[in-house]
């Protein structure tokens, strides 16, 4: 099954393709607010790299967040429209699950681990979930599904609340705690102070990666997860909409006169 993964929940935007024959391709850009511009070309590129056309894609995985709202909407709208236009289904995956899976793949040791995934929610808050991994680390190119070990659902909290929960957390004597995500990077010094010694920041995984998303989705599909119709896929915002009307954000005046320019 040709599986296309679409990632745009945080500052990293891109696509990955796991092709029928086992090949993997990934294209991503770390370019903040340029999600809308670079996502469609990335999709076209990973298909070309895999020797297929977009029409040959048979399933789509998309990061539905939590994350940055505009990026989420670009990714989810793209996934929905591709699925609609191709007549195929979509697997929605949590950004925090992708981060946790990426952290374990990066850490690659057989010790038991606690993983704390942290996505920067801006405005002094973070989205976070905690996971527990037991048993063997994933092999190269393999991925563990963090969902069975998820200890808490995604929450929107302040860094202070997250730090308090880390201080109070009983990780077990032989355990290491991995912390991962752009929220962890942003608040790294305060988080490090919270746990002396046993906290490792997984620096190489600051954003969910398209390829990790693709591999996690493939694993879930192999385990029996079902694709959803395009119409049912929605972003997981985890934060109420800011219901203020910003008149200034509306269309600017179009006057042509000198008077207008002088204002």
């Amino acid at each position: 099954m040709n599986l296309l993964a679409i990632e745009s929940a945080t500052a990293l935007v891109g696509a990955a393709l796991l092709a029928d024959g086992g090949s993997a391709a990934e294209r991503s850009h770390q370019q903040g607010r340029m999600h809308a511009e670079s996502l469609a070309p990335a999709i076209e590129e990973v298909c070309a790299l895999s020797g297929i056309t977009v029409r040959d894609v048979q399933a789509i995985a998309v990061d539905v967040g939590p994350g940055l709202f505009t990026g989420l909407r670009v990714g989810v709208a793209t996934a929905k429209a591709l699925a609609q236009g191709l007549g195929i289904g979509v697997l929605a995956v949590s950004s925090l699950d992708i981060l946790a899976a990426g952290a374990m793949a990066e850490a690659g040791s057989d010790e038991a681990r606690t993983v704390v995934a942290v996505v920067d929610a801006r405005r002094g808050e973070v989205f976070t979930s905690r996971y527990r991994f037991d048993g063997a680390a994933p092999g190269p190119g393999q991925i563990l599904d963090p969902a069975p070990g998820r200890l808490s659902p995604p929450q929107l909290v302040t860094p202070d609340v997250l730090i308090r929960s880390l201080v109070e957390m009983d990780a077990g004597p032989a355990d290491r705690v991995l912390i991962v995500g752009d929220g962890a990077v942003r608040y790294r010094h305060r988080l490090a102070d919270a746990r002396a010694g046993d906290l490792d920041l997984v620096e190489r995984v600051s954003s969910p990666s398209p390829l990790t998303l693709a591999r996690l989705a493939r694993r879930r599909l192999d385990a029996g997860a079902e694709l959803a119709p395009a119409a049912e896929v929605v972003p997981d915002y985890r934060r109420e909409a800011d219901a203020r009307i910003n008149w200034e954000q509306r269309i600017p005046p179009t006057g042509t006169s000198v008077r207008a320019r002088e204002r």
Binding site: H35, A36, L39, A40, I43, E44, T53, V54, R55, F69, T70, R73, V74, G75, A77, T78, A79, K80, A81, L82, Q84, G85, L86
Partner: peptide, 19 residues
């Protein structure tokens, strides 16, 4: 901007799907 981007993403994806 947040509304425009939804339509642009949708249009580009449909164009890709339909070639």
């Amino acid at each position: 901007i947040g509304s425009l981007l939804v339509g642009v993403a949708e249009a580009k994806a449909l164009a890709l799907a339909w070639d």
